[in-house]
């Protein structure tokens, strides 16, 4: 063996040894999933979890959802509003979470969403609508009116605005407008009487 070959052999040997050492040091890089759970970052964008109790069907999320994964629809004969999400269309952007006024929807790290049947990708919630106390038309989800009532009642400064709002809370938009017009008319009449 020439000196050159010997040197080459030792160098090569040491490289192989180094490689083996390195491999042993690094260990197995492959994740154990699906045989063991996989760790996901806390804020990983996964399935939007919708809490149907916290939701009052305001449709803010349906307005914001870019691919219309969340949709709402009214059924005025049955007096219901339905809210639905299709996880197969969701792009996990988080806009629904951003706009929800009551934190009823939030992206969770849940990622195991694959299904064999398309219907399984859907979640549908049905909410009841409230009738206007004046004209009897359905005008808003019952839960939304109830929430507004309680929030208004909670504001500790029970000023005129709040009591006026609480007064007309069970009215639909057009009945509210009528009531406002009526009030204004009363006010101006009284002001006129004072002037005379």
């Amino acid at each position: 063996m020439t000196a050159d070959t010997r040197r080459w052999n030792t160098e090569k040997g040491s490289t192989v040894l180094k490689t083996i050492k390195e491999v042993l040091r690094v260990g197995d890089a492959t994740v154990k999933y699906p045989f063991a759970p996989i760790e996901r970052p806390r804020d990983a964008r996964g399935k939007p979890e919708h809490d149907s109790v916290k939701c009052f069907a305001c449709s803010a999320c349906a307005n914001a959802c870019p691919p219309n994964a969340i949709q709402t629809s009214l059924d005025l004969t049955a007096g219901t509003k339905s809210w639905s999400i299709n996880y197969g269309r969701c792009v996990f952007c988080g806009r629904c979470e951003e706009v929800c006024p009551v934190d009823a929807i939030r992206l969770s790290p849940e990622f195991e969403l694959a299904v064999m049947k398309k219907e399984d990708l859907e979640e549908i919630c049905t909410y009841s609508l409230q009738r206007c106390s004046e004209c009897g038309e359905f005008f808003a989800p019952t839960k939304a009116v109830d929430y507004a009532k309680r929030v208004l009642a909670q504001s500790n400064t029970l000023n005129d605005d709040v009591s006026l709002a609480l007064d007309s809370i069970n009215l639909c938009m057009s009945c509210k407008q009528k009531q406002d017009a009526h009030r204004y008319w009363e006010q101006s009449r009284r002001a006129g009487e004072l002037l005379c």
Binding site: V53, Y87, V102, A114, D120, E122, S128, Q154
Partner: peptide, 29 residues
């Protein structure tokens, strides 16, 4: 997960859900 489900290693988690509001249900403030 999708392939593991197709191969029968894992079960399907997501199910079609329909929820109806319970009368008297309130949104917590």
């Amino acid at each position: 997960y999708g392939f593991a489900m197709a191969l029968g290693l894992l079960g399907q988690k997501l199910k079609h859900t329909e929820i109806t509001e319970v009368p008297g249900e309130q949104v917590p403030i």
